[in-house]
């Protein structure tokens, strides 16, 4: 029973998903003025993991990717006054963590087709200014599509370096500096790859001018209304507290 509900929430309409992602990022950026609200909102996001069948522990562990950023920001925010300002530092940290959680969950529960669908709809108003919305959506999706490929590439180059006797530096700042010269070959490869992808898509009939059909119909159901209703309540409550 509960599993079925989980699946329903995971498979919300792509527009609902994209919309929620944007709304929650806005909430974290502008509404979480105090660290208490930040904490509660983060707990809420973690709780919602249960409903979309995501591993909470994994999500928390993934925070280590932005650990350095968190520390730097905390130091800058904390020392803005004469003495260390815990409240300031803490609330900023909670805001960053919140945005990170929401963005991570969004990309985890969305397939590429759903992303394409949502962003195409979002960029639609640009048509009024003579800009093709699908082209922007496509660029976005190619970027998202290739992110894991680049990660693999970076890993491969790292391993190749170690195999040639490079010392693996644990300090992430030093390794980032060492990494700079590699950026050019990786970028060149990236451009070549995306050119080939664009060719492959064109051969398979993709054109930004012709209309496309969608084989999966995205319906707007009970669960979409439920989530949107719930989000509205949260916004109202937050606005009231403020």
């Amino acid at each position: 029973m509960f599993n079925k509900v989980k699946l329903k929430f995971r498979n919300l309409n792509p527009i609902t998903k994209g919309f929620l992602c944007v709304i929650y990022i806005l909430i974290f950026s502008f509404f979480c003025k105090s660290w208490q609200i930040g904490l509660v909102m983060n707990l809420f996001v973690l709780l919602s993991c249960l409903f979309i069948d995501e591993d909470v522990i994994q999500l928390i562990i993934s925070l280590k990717k932005i650990l350095l950023l968190l520390i730097i920001v905390a130091i800058f925010q904390g020392f803005s006054g004469n003495e260390f300002n815990y409240v300031n530092a803490l609330s900023t940290i909670f805001r960053i963590i919140g945005v990170f959680f929401v963005a991570t969950l969004y990309t985890k529960v969305s397939t590429q087709n759903e992303l394409l669908y949502f962003w195409e709809k979002c960029f639609k108003p640009l048509k009024l200014f003579g800009v093709s919305s699908s082209e922007y959506a496509l660029t976005m999706v190619i970027a998202i599509r290739f992110l894991p490929v680049f990660m693999d590439e970076i890993e491969r180059i790292k391993i190749a370096q170690i195999a040639r006797g490079a010392k693996l530096k644990t300090n992430s700042i030093v390794s980032a500096i060492n990494f700079m010269p590699l950026l050019i070959p990786i970028l060149t490869q990236a451009i070549m790859r995306s050119e080939e992808l664009a060719d492959a898509m064109e051969v398979r009939g993709y054109s930004t001018e012709r209309p496309r059909s969608l084989y999966k119909k995205y319906s707007f159901g009970k669960y979409d209304f439920l989530t949107i209703f719930f989000t509205t309540i949260i916004i109202v409550v937050l606005a009231y507290i403020k």
Binding site: Q112, N113, R193, L197, A200, R204, S213, Y215, K216
Partner: peptide, 24 residues
């Protein structure tokens, strides 16, 4: 790796067919 567009097998096969504006 440079020509698969979909995230699942079904999505990828569907991609080209969608471009020809066929019904679902």
């Amino acid at each position: 790796d440079n020509q698969i567009v979909g995230t699942t097998i079904g999505d990828d096969i569907a991609f080209g067919l969608e471009n020809f504006n066929l019904s679902s």
